[in-house]
Design a protein around this nucleic acid. Sequence first.
DNA 1: TTAATTCA
DNA 2: TGAATTAA
Length: 61
Amino acid sequence: MSKLPAVKVKDPTTGKEVELSPIKVWTLAPKTRKGVKIGLFKSPESGKFFRAKVPDDYPAK
DNA sequence: TTAATTCA
DNA sequence: TGAATTAA
């Protein structure tokens, strides 16, 4: 329920680069590796959900 | 192949 | 239940 800042992401459904606030952000990492942070987004254009990497220093959870 | 998450 | 996400 945290207020996550907007991120510049490529919307794969429209092909456009847009600024969106992730619905949710979490770390996707194997035990032995650092992994990446993933955000769940909803395209304002298409209404479709998609996932994309967010910056490493992004507040997760 | 591995990791968590959630939509389809 | 599977896809998709990143990158080592």
